[in-house]
Design a binder for these strands. Structure first.
Lengths: 257, 257
DNA sequence: CGGATTCTTGAAGTCGCTCAACGAACGTGG
DNA sequence: CCACGTTCGTTGAGCGACTTCAAGAATCCG
């Protein structure tokens, strides 16, 4: 089924860039940490938070730095990565607006991975010590914080099984569908978006070589499932991508022109 | 370096099986949820907790069940697994005494994986709603709970990169070293333990076939790095296992007889 | 425009999988 | 205690998916 949604905005992934620095007026408040809070609670959260702008390739934090803050992405994209014994980068995650970064560091007290902006971006800095104070006073914030941590566990568990058990085609199809779903959840076009990562980063993320990623793109394009122009991707045939992502054979009917 | 530690107890992984049902007298209290709590706090936690015995192959919970409780393993071993689209089991984790199970379900409200006892085991059941109440009143419990959730995130992130980037030898070496370290942390022999999982489960966990696991065992044994007799494993050459686990070539000197 | 980077495509190689058969361990009942 | 069936583990041979190596094309950016 061909469904190129062009009516929605492209995935600039920027909330209304208000000059005020408040959660209460942030367009992400229902996706991010403040979900479900009342006005006065939002006000208290506001007091903790500072904003920080980053340019493309800036480090939000580096591996091994002491943990002080959690970060909520306001706009832009980040990648988190670890370095292996040979100093090679291994990409652990891709974060976009509304995502919380740094939760893996609470336990150890230092960031076990680094985070880099994939484009000009902005984050909300949340000092963890102060957040903990607030959590004790605000049941709804506590509940939602636990939900977010739990979701991160579930997400990584899925990713773990995904990398362990799926073949290249499945991984790539699921990667596209995952991006699509995340953009849709943020109100952006589900079927038309820019890849923020290079082929190299994508390959690294999916544990495939850059050549394999390139071949998969060509293959999917030739089958009429996607359209690719540099980093612009349009999903033309969600059904087939879904079938492939589940390890099923392609569905009979391919997308017509 | 040959180091077969035989003086420590084998990994029965059982705390002193006291008849009292209290965290305060549990030998795991410094590994488990109550870490760092005072006597009165321990008492409050005790009130929440009930114990549950399971026999080998019993389900602690099943995939999709509504989330009500977290579980702390008191003794025994569990595996957590998901079922894929074809109903095949994919092992997501191996839990032993002191480990907390079920955290991935807080966010969604239902268990996204199932948990099965690998041998006769016992867990502490912790009703989550009541735990949340307690968390708001006990800062140290809250902090430790967040540490445990965070550690779970970090652990799964590592596992994710591990499955994505490592080859069979590395995976298996790391698997053995990981078990060794976890048993050591619990006061059991680091270099001599029983595998609680079948070859099939191990293969599934490491995303390898049962044949590959078998070949790796034979290979490591022939190189003098381990001794294997059925499910009994003795680590003879930690240094080489470490080298292999990091993707390095074996160190020159193999273990002498 | 020109150099560097990123991406694509082809050919050859390899690691782990599949398929198949055999052997060892377990446990149930005689 | 042994006989027997079943489950679990080992080993070998061939194959396939993805990688590696290599070269060339497109794109970016000063």
């Amino acid at each position: 089924m061909k469904t190129v949604i062009q009516l929605q905005p492209a995935n600039a992934c920027q909330p209304t860039r208000s000059t005020t620095q408040k959660c209460s007026v942030c367009s992400l408040k229902n996706l991010c940490l403040p979900q479900g809070l009342g006005e006065s609670e939002l006000g208290q959260l506001d007091k903790l938070i500072t904003r920080r702008r980053l340019e493309k390739d800036d480090n939000l934090y580096r591996m091994g730095e002491p943990f002080k803050k959690l970060y909520a992405v306001r706009f832009g994209h980040f990648k988190t990565y670890q370095l292996n014994a040979f100093g090679e980068q291994q990409i652990a995650g891709l974060q976009m607006s509304g995502d919380l970064i740094g939760m893996e560091a609470i336990g150890s007290g230092s960031y076990s991975c680094g985070a880099i902006a994939l484009e000009d971006s902005e984050v909300c800095e949340i000092p963890y010590a102060q957040l903990e104070e607030l959590l004790m006073k605000m049941p709804r914030l506590l509940q939602h914080f636990h939900r977010m941590m739990s979701q991160e566990i579930a997400r990584e568990q899925t990713m773990m099984l995904f990398l362990g058990n799926m073949r290249a085609e499945q991984r790539f199809a699921l990667f596209l569908l995952n991006l699509s779903a995340r953009y849709a959840a943020r109100g952006y076009a589900a079927a038309s978006f820019q890849l923020r990562m290079s082929r190299e980063d994508i390959g690294n993320y999916l544990s495939l070589t850059i050549e394999s990623v390139s071949r998969l793109m060509t293959s999917f394009r030739k089958k009429g499932w996607i359209e690719v122009a540099n980093r612009q991707v349009d999903i033309l045939d969600v059904d087939n991508l879904k079938a492939i992502s589940m390890g099923l054979p392609p569905v009979a009917q391919a997308a017509a022109a």
